[in-house]
């Protein structure tokens, strides 16, 4: 069973990410059964069908998707994910910040795609509570070791999703 890091713990995970096959139609493509995270275009055209199914449903956003378009549905979803086609594509960080702060989403927020240990710290500070590296990218031992990255910076300068106040408001910093 694949493993993810959720709130700082390595845990087994049942969620499958459904990616629309090349040329497939979002309206008719076969969606796997079980806990599934569907792409936003599928959610847009099959919202009622997915909500009616017995399985929990999540939606993943691509970097080019507008999180505002999902804002009204956030309460209905068991999970939201953001895809990183490459780990150097940083749009997902701002999407996560928007989901957490602008749209008030408090449910599970998962980073999927090329999710690597050396981005865990920034991803979690941007609001992701679940980090799902590609299956097979890390051994169990490497994933356990990678949890330490979440604590790379004890007291960062910035306000962020997990530090709602910037350093200068969190602490009284003595003058020179």
């Amino acid at each position: 069973m694949p493993k993810v890091i959720h709130k700082g713990q390595v845990v087994a995970d049942n969620w499958q990410v459904f990616r629309l096959p090349e040329g497939a139609d979002a309206a008719t493509a076969a969606i796997p059964t079980g806990q599934v995270i569907v792409p936003f275009p599928v959610w847009q055209v099959r919202r009622e069908e997915l909500l009616a199914s017995a399985d929990a449903v999540g939606v993943w956003l691509a970097g080019s998707d507008d999180p505002a378009a999902l804002a009204d549905d956030l309460h209905a979803l068991a999970l939201v994910a953001v895809d990183f086609p490459k780990f150097t594509d940083g749009r997902g960080y701002s999407i996560a910040v928007a989901l957490r702060t602008r749209f008030g989403y408090t449910g599970p927020l998962r980073a999927i795609g090329q999710v690597l240990r050396d981005q865990f710290n920034y991803l979690s500070r941007s609001g992701f509570d679940t980090l799902a590296p590609a299956e097979g990218r890390y051994t169990d031992a490497q994933l356990e070791a990678a949890v330490a990255s979440l604590a790379d910076f004890t007291d960062p300068y910035q306000a962020s999703v997990i530090h709602p106040q910037p350093l200068f408001r969190r602490h009284s910093r003595a003058a020179a």
Binding site: F87, T88, D89, G90, Y93, S94, V97, Q119, N121, Y122, L123, R125, S126, F153, P156, Y157, Q158, S160
Partner: peptide, 9 residues
């Protein structure tokens, strides 16, 4: 410095 949101512009 180490801004989490803007490291992969």
């Amino acid at each position: 410095t180490y801004n989490p949101e803007f490291a992969y512009l």
